[in-house]
Design a protein around this nucleic acid. Structure first.
Length: 586
RNA sequence: GUGUGUGUAGCUCAGCUGGAUAGAGCGUCUGGCUACGGACCAGAAGGUCGGGGGUUCGAAUCCUCUCACACACGCCA
C-alpha cells in the first residue's frame, strides 16, 4: 500500500493536471500548521514562476478541481498560495483498517537487498566499556530496521582479534610466565587445554601491557614482533591466541545478550587471515599496490578531493597486516560467503578517514563488485553531563556492565518507591525498563552527533524517554486486559474518528510507513523515536479525554478498542525495531 | 596548518532537505485527582536559530566570509 502522503499527493497531482499544470507540483507534505490543516501542498508557489501566474490563482484553480473529492473533508487555497488539506473520516479509517489487516501494516517494501551490518567491533581480551555501547545499540537497531523491510540481513560483530593488542598480551604473558610451553620454540608436545589465565587476569593484562608499550620502546618492539609472529603462524602463539578467544568470547556473548544485541556472525579480523596473501598478491599483480616508505600502499586520492587523502596502507614495513588489510579481506570474505549488495559499518565517526580509504581501495582494486553499496554510519561520542567524554568518577573508563547495573538499580528503586511490587518481579521489570531507558536515550539522538548520557533524564518516566514510551504501552495493555477479562474478543475494525483527539491519534498512526521508510533510507533510528513519542503523546491526550471501557455505545467502544489494539501493535513494532520491549506491568 | 563536523529557549535535543506564528522535554510558574494505571493531562513565561553579507516572492535550511568548540590528518585500532 502506498503511504498516506503518496496517496494524497497522487490525488492532488491529478488536481494540478486537471487545472493544466504539471503533476509534479502536487507533492503533499505533513502540515506545519496543525491548527490550520493536516496536510499541505506548496506546489502552487513553486509553479508560479514557471507559469507566470500568481500562486494564489493556481492554488484556487487546483482547489476547485479537487473540491468534493471523497478523500478530503477540506481543501482550501490560502494566501500566498498554500493548499491546506484535511482528510475525510472515511478515507482515514479506511487507511487504518488496511494497515490493520495488512502484513507489516501494509508497508510498501523496497527492492530487497542482501545487507551486512558491521557493528560491535569489540577487542577480545578487553572488557566492553561504554565506548562499545553506541555501536551495539545503533547497529542492532539498523539491522532490525533493514530486516523489517524485507532485506536479507547479516549482523557481524567483527571482533578485533588480530592486531597489536594480541601481541601485547602475548608479550606481557611472556614476561610474567616465561616458563610456559607456548614460549618454548623447541616444544613439540600438545599444549595444555586449560588457559594459563582467567578472564579477570586477562582483563588486567591488556591495559598493563598497553601502558608499558607507551613508555618502553623495546617492549613495544617486542609486542609488534609477537603480533607478526602470531600472524605468520607461530604455533605456541596461535595456541595462546585460541586460549584468549576461548576465555574472552563467551563473556562478550553474555554481555551482548544482556543488551539484547544478537549477531548472526561472530567473525573477526583473524577469520580472514588466510585470504590476505592472495589479496595482496592480486593487488600487486594488477599494479595497484606499490612500495612506499617501506610499506605496501594503494593510492586512493581523487581529483575532486578538497584535502589530500593519504594512500591506503596494505602492509606495514615489517610485512605485518593492519586494520585496513583485514577490513579489505573481510569484504572479500563476505563476498564469498554471502555476496552482499550493501555493507553498512556502524563505527565511531573518528574512523571515517580509515573507511574512506578502505572503500576507495576496495572499489579500485575490485575487492567489491561494481554497484555494491558501502556505507559508513559514524556515530559521535557519548559524553557525561559535563559535556566531556563519559568517565567514571575516578576518571577511568567505565565498564559497560557497571553502567547497565547502575541504571538497573536506579530503575528498581523507582519502581519499588512508586508502588508496592513483588521484589522478584520488580527486578525483572527493572531490567526491561533499564534497557529501554539506555537504548532510547541513545537512539533518540541523531547517531552522527555527540550526545550527553544523562542518567537522571534517561531513567525519568516523564518527557521523551524510554520509560515514558513503555508506560504508555503498559497502560494500553492494562485497558485491553480489562476489556478481555470477561472473555470478550478484541475487535479489529476501526471506526470513524469521533473527535479531534481521536483523529490526531489516527493521523499519527497513519504515518508509520513514512517513518519506517525514512529511518531505513536515511539509516536513522532516531526517526522512529521521534515518531513513537508523537504517537504516545497523541494517545495519552486521547485517552485522557475519552472514557473507553465505560462507553455505552457498543460500536463506538469497539472502534476505540480496535484503535488501541493498532496503537499497541505499532508501538511494540517500533520499540522492537529500536531493540527493546515492554513489560506487562511496571 | 589543512580538512571535516557541530553551534537553535537556562539545560538536553527536534526541525519532514526552501514555506505560514522556529517546535518538544527538563527546569520555573499556574490549573486539573469521584485514578479505564495521575509515572498523566491542560496552560504560561522563555529565541536577533553563533555573527556579518548574499541568492529570492520566502532562509534555521542554499552560497560566501567570520568566530567558537570537537574530531581527523602514513606504518594503533
Amino acid at each position: 500500500m502506498k503511504t498516506i502522503l503518496e496517496q494524497i499527493s497522487e490525488t492532488v497531482a491529478k488536481g494540478f493536471e486537471a487545472a493544466g499544470y504539471d503533476a509534479s507540483y502536487g507533492k503533499v507534505g505533513v502540515s506545519n500548521r496543525p491548527d490550520l490543516c493536516e496536510f499541505q501542498c506548496n506546489g502552487a508557489m513553486a509553479g508560479a514562476k514557471a507559469y507566470h501566474k500568481a500562486p494564489m490563482a493556481i492554488a484556487e484553480e487546483v482547489a476547485a478541481k479537487l473540491s468534493g473529492n471523497s478523500a478530503f473533508s477540506m481543501i482550501n487555497a490560502v494566501a500566498p498560495g498554500f493548499l491546506n488539506i484535511k482528510v475525510s473520516d472515511d478515507f482515514l479509517s479506511g487507511f487504518l483498517n488496511k494497515m490493520e489487516s495488512g502484513d507489516k501494516f501494509a508497508v510498501d517494501m523496497p527492492q530487497p537487498e542482501k545487507i551486512v551490518v558491521d557493528y560491535g567491533g569489540p577487542n577480545v581480551a578487553k572488557p566492553l566499556h561504554v565506548g562499545h555501547l553506541r555501536a551495539a545499540i545503533i547497529g542492532e537497531s539498523v539491522k532490525r530496521i533493514c530486516k523489517y523491510l524485507g532485506n536479507d540481513v547479516i549482523g557481524d560483530v567483527h571482533l578485533g582479534d588480530w592486531g597489536l593488542q594480541m601481541g601485547l598480551i602475548i608479550t606481557e604473558l611472556r614476561e610474567r610466565k616465561p616458563e610456559l610451553p607456548y614460549f618454548d620454540e623447541s616444544f613439540e608436545g600438545e599444549y595444555p587445554s586449560e588457559a594459563p589465565f582467567t578472564l579477570s587476569e586477562l582483563e588486567e593484562i591488556y591495559p598493563a601491557a598497553s601502558a608499558k608499550s607507551k613508555e618502553d620502546e623495546a617492549y613495544k618492539e617486542a609486542a609488534l614482533e609477537a603480533t607478526g609472529q602470531l600472524q605468520r603462524g607461530n604455533r605456541g602463539y596461535r595456541a595462546l591466541w585460541q586460549h584468549i578467544m576461548d576465555v574472552s568470547v563467551p563473556d562478550l556473548k553474555k554481555n551482548y545478550k544482556d543488551l539484547s544485541v544478537e549477531f548472526d556472525w561472530w567473525k573477526g579480523e583473524s577469520s580472514v587471515d588466510a585470504l590476505i596473501p592472495d589479496m595482496v598478491k592480486d593487488m600487486k599483480d594488477k599494479g595497484f599496490a606499490y612500495e612506499s616508505e617501506g610499506a605496501l600502499v594503494v593510492d586512493v586520492a581523487q581529483e575532486s578531493d578538497s584535502k589530500e587523502i593519504p594512500p591506503c596502507m596494505i602492509l606495514k614495513s615489517d610485512g605485518a597486516s593492519l586494520y585496513t588489510t583485514t577490513d579489505l579481506a573481510t569484504l572479500l570474505d563476505r563476498r564469498s560467503c554471502f555476496d552482499p549488495d550493501h555493507v553498512i559499518y556502524v563505527v565511531d565517526k573518528r574512523q571515517e578517514m580509515h573507511f574512506i580509504q578502505v572503500f576507495r581501495c576496495a572499489r579500485k582494486t575490485g575487492v567489491v563488485k561494481d554497484g555494491v553499496k558501502l556505507d559508513f554510519l559514524g556515530f559521535g561520542t557519548m559524553n557525561g553531563k559535563d559535556g566531556k567524554p563519559f568517565k567514571t568518577r575516578e576518571g577511568g573508563v567505565m565498564r559497560l556492565e557497571t553502567l547497565i547495573s547502575d541504571i538497573r538499580d536506579t530503575m528498581y528503586r523507582k519502581i519499588m518507591d512508586n508502588h508496592e511490587a513483588d521484589p522478584e518481579e520488580a527486578k525483572k521489570t527493572s531490567e526491561t525498563v533499564a534497557l529501554a531507558a539506555i537504548k532510547y536515550g541513545d537512539l533518540s539522538n541523531q547517531a552522527t552527533k555527540d550526545y550527553v548520557f544523562d542518567t537522571d533524564k534517561f531513567t525519568s518516566f516523564e518527557g521523551n524517554t524510554g520509560p515514558y514510551i513503555l508506560y504508555t504501552i503498559v497502560r494500553i495493555k492494562s485497558i485491553l486486559g480489562k476489556y478481555t477479562a470477561d472473555g470478550s474478543k478484541l475487535p479489529t475494525s476501526i471506526g470513524k474518528p469521533q473527535n479531534d483527539l481521536e483523529k490526531s491519534l489516527m493521523l499519527e498512526l497513519s504515518k508509520f510507513a513514512i517513518t519506517v521508510r525514512a529511518a531505513y533510507d536515511e539509516i536513522a533510528p532516531h526517526r522512529i523515536c521521534a515518531y513513537i513519542y508523537d504517537v504516545c503523546n497523541a494517545f495519552n491526550r486521547f485517552y485522557h479525554e475519552t472514557k473507553i471501557l465505560t462507553e455505552e455505545d457498543a460500536a463506538k467502544k469497539e472502534g476505540w478498542i480496535a484503535l488501541l489494539v493498532l496503537t499497541k501493535r505499532i508501538l511494540e513494532t517500533c520499540i522492537d525495531l529500536l531493540g527493546f520491549e515492554a513489560p506487562e506491568k511496571m
